Simulated assay, not measured.
Amino acid sequence: MSTLHIIQGDRDGDKKWIERHAGKRATSGFNWVMPKAAQPGDEVIIYIGGHGFFAKGRVRSHTLPRPDWQHRYGAKVGSIRLIDPPIPLEAIQRSIPKLTWANYPRSITTPEPQIASQIRSLIDEYGAALPKFSAAQYRAALEKMGTRVTENLRTMLSTHTRAPKLILDNQQLAQSAGQTDPSYTNAHYGRLGHMLARALGHRGKERVWTRMIGEDSRNKKNGLIQWRMHNALAEAVRAMHWRPTIRPDAEEDIRLAEKSLATLDNTTRKAVIDARRGQGRFRQQLIELWGGACAVTGCDVRAALTASHIKPWRACSNKERLSAHNGLLLIGTLDCLFDNGLITFEENGRLCTSSQLSAKQKRTLGLRSGMKLRRIERAHLPFLKWHRDKEYS
């Protein structure tokens, strides 16, 4: 069997060249950086940062010194075939732990024959069929997993069920959990898929566990990995009626937003963090906007009032996090119900209650027909619509 090499491609020019020439009898007109020992006919796996194992091909020339890069050699590559979808780095690390290159994939390498065989198997098994599971089986598995399905995973899954045709890419899913890096989804969906398999009693030799969640493919517009969630899983997630059992932890949200916060000046950064904690300028703005009283009941006992975001802090831009129109001043009971998606407000401010609440529960909670926001401004509307669409159940 021929020798296998892992080489690198950039996210722009190289990636576009690969996509344009994949499946054609084309050989690159330029030399790819290559191990000096590479020979014509050797296999190559092309890794692209942020995507993973992206394509495979063959060496089509002898290696020559690169005039633009001292101590580096290059060779032409042809017979390009896309690995569709790309195999993310997290899956490579998890599936082939002895491939030490994957711990810091910034170079080229020629894996030992045994590891090269594992790489070939990973690529071959990537498209293997999975057994079909019913919605009832998925729901039983999710219930069995319990709190191991974290708040962020619940948010990602719930967001996925509302996507057109159940399709979202890894960046969109990361953003739903307040993250910006697509690899966040790759890692967390990978772990979730593995947990699902175990809870379902699936003992297959899957290497890419995200396929327990949905069928993966490449987003043709941006090249990112995307998943079409299995219909049965989507049905099971909807049936779970997931809402946080406690208020999302403010300090955890702040920690996860560290990169975004680091771009702000100290004064603005403090204001944004205080807004998540329901303190500082954000709370004062809501007190002024609502006249120091609950936005619904008119209760003016300050100790009983909570300054809370309409669109959750973790899903907001820094500007939205500081907007008084993205906040409500509510008594504790209403604030808790609103945060958990059990109540929301229509465009005219009328309070809506979830079908999950019985008539007796509504009476006990003091929810009455005709309750509404005491005032509403145009700037509130997009945030309230977001809450109705994304949080209310």
Rank of each mutant, 00 (worst) to 15 (best):
Gln279Asn: 13
Gly57Lys: 02
Leu99Ser: 04
Thr150Gly: 03
Ala177Val: 08
Asp14Gln: 08
Ser28Ile: 05
Pro164Val: 10
Gln171Lys: 15
Phe53Pro: 00
Lys360Asn: 12
Phe54Gln: 02
Tyr392Pro: 05
Met229Asn: 02
Ser79Trp: 05
Arg302Phe: 08
Phe133Ser: 00
Thr27Gly: 03
Arg139Val: 05
Pro65Ala: 09
Lys390Asp: 10
Tyr104Met: 14
Leu89Gly: 03
Ile225Ala: 04
Glu391Trp: 04
Ala239Asn: 13
Leu166Pro: 06
Ile213Leu: 15
Leu337Asn: 00
Thr353Asn: 00
Ser183Gly: 03
Lys76Asn: 13
Phe383Asn: 07
Leu330Phe: 06
Lys372Asn: 13
Asp389Lys: 11
Ala303Asp: 12
Val296Tyr: 02
Ser183Arg: 15
Pro65Cys: 06
Gly201Thr: 10
Val33Gln: 10
Ala304Met: 11
Lys36Ala: 12
Gln356His: 10
Gly298Ser: 02
Leu286Asn: 01
Pro131Phe: 09
Asp389Cys: 10
Arg255Ser: 12
Ser217His: 11
Asp14Phe: 06
Phe383Trp: 12
Ala140Thr: 15
Phe54Tyr: 14
Tyr392Asn: 07
Ile83Tyr: 02
Pro111Val: 04
Ile287Trp: 01
Ser28Met: 04
Glu235Tyr: 00
Gln175Glu: 15
Arg20Gln: 13
Lys36Gln: 15
Pro40Met: 09
Leu329Ala: 00
His71Ile: 06
Arg139Trp: 04
Leu367Lys: 01
Leu166Asp: 06
Thr297His: 03
Ile115Cys: 01
Thr155Lys: 10
Ile254Ser: 06
Pro244Glu: 09
Arg277Met: 11
Thr63Trp: 03
Val237Asn: 08
Leu256Trp: 01
Cys299Trp: 04
Gly298Tyr: 01
Arg218Cys: 13
Trp313Ile: 01
Glu125Thr: 08
Ala140Asp: 14
Leu233Arg: 03
Gln175Tyr: 07
Leu351Ser: 08
Leu168Gln: 08
Leu166Gln: 06
Ala232Ser: 14
Leu337Ser: 02
Leu122Lys: 01
Met156Ile: 14
Met229Gly: 02
Arg58Ser: 13
Arg375Tyr: 06
Val237Ser: 05
Gln114His: 13
His194Gln: 14
Ala37His: 14
Arg198Trp: 08
Gln179Ala: 03
Asp68Asn: 14
Arg58Leu: 09
His325Leu: 06
Arg120Tyr: 13
Thr306Gly: 05
